[in-house]
Design a binder for these strands. Structure first.
Length: 274
DNA sequence: AGAGATACCTGGGAGC
DNA sequence: TGCTCCCAGGTATCTC
């Protein structure tokens, strides 16, 4: 399930595969995922060249030669591939962009939570309006203990929900929120106004370290995620708390617990995380 | 207004 | 074996 590290790996691989390629044809097989895919067919993409790709949170933007861009989000089951045209279409591949090197950019999404649309870039190098509400980029200098502490004063929610709020910090989903709070030794249920500045610093440091390490490992494959080359993310082998309910905590041996927050599972060690 | 709950979607696994 | 039920997840939209 693609979170920020997965999106970063997809973005890097897509940049290698698509930079300088010209789109020669568009096929849409499914009318709608999160939004309608039909506008892609009449967007006039044929003849446009892809300048490169960049990432913001879990979104990937592929800049086009006419100043517009392809905006992508991978939901929880989105997979993109760039493959030879002779390979038959898979069951849940919804869009084909034919390229001038004879290959096809294929957009697959089993659960149809993904997004692929053409957007306007207001000024070269800026982000599309659709991403305006996103909060701090977790690996940037903007995301600091002070920033999180300040955001936590303004909210009454549990710290885990704060970490997963895209308006505060973008790209941290359920898996990495769990791993971050375990590494920072903070309970996911702690009310955010109670967080101290040192705790916020621990959380931010842990998030950055875990995300950077997960990017290095090629992301986390739980069930659906695959990299552009079809490889699986290796970070799943390094998960310490996510999905470990009933198993011993890797630090103290105490039984890992699971609670539900915002409809999602939170895993934590009751002894290590306060 | 802020925060929690729900719908969207499909495949896989559990349980009967 | 085959059916039903539940769960996973991010985001938009709702309800209180």
């Amino acid at each position: 399930m693609p979170e920020l590290p997965e999106a970063e790996n997809i973005c890097r691989a897509l940049d290698r595969a698509l930079r300088g390629r010209t789109i020669t044809g568009v096929e849409v097989f499914t009318p709608a995922m999160r939004t309608s895919l039909l506008p892609l067919k009449r967007a006039g993409l044929e003849g446009l060249t892809i300048r490169g790709t960049r990432r913001r949170g879990r979104y990937v933007v592929a800049d086009l030669s006419d100043g517009r861009a392809l905006l992508m989000h991978f939901g929880m089951s989105g997979v993109v591939r760039v493959e030879d045209a002779s390979i038959p279409r898979r069951k849940h591949e919804h869009v084909f962009l034919h390229l001038d090197d004879g290959r096809i950019f294929r957009f697959e999404c089993t659960r149809r939570f993904s997004l692929l649309e053409v957007v306007t870039i207001p000024k070269k190098g800026t982000w599309p309006e659709e991403l305006a509400a996103l909060g701090a980029e977790p690996l940037s200098d903007e995301f600091t203990g002070e920033y999180l502490h300040s955001a936590s004063r303004r909210r009454k929610t549990a710290v885990k929900l704060l970490l997963m709020d895209n308006a505060v910090v973008t790209g941290i989903g359920n898996i990495y929120a769990n791993e971050t709070l375990f590494a920072a030794r903070v309970s996911p249920e702690r009310p955010s106004p109670e967080l101290t500045l040192p705790e916020c610093r621990r959380i931010v440091d842990a998030a950055k370290a875990i995300l950077a390490r997960a990017i290095e490992a090629g992301g986390t494959t739980i069930s659906d995620f695959l990299n552009v080359d079809g490889s699986e993310g290796k970070f799943v082998q390094e998960l310490r708390i996510y999905g470990k309910a009933g198993l011993p905590c890797p630090v103290c041996g105490c039984e890992v617990r699971c609670v539900r927050q915002g409809g999602r599972s939170s895993f934590y060690c009751p002894k290590c995380q306060k």
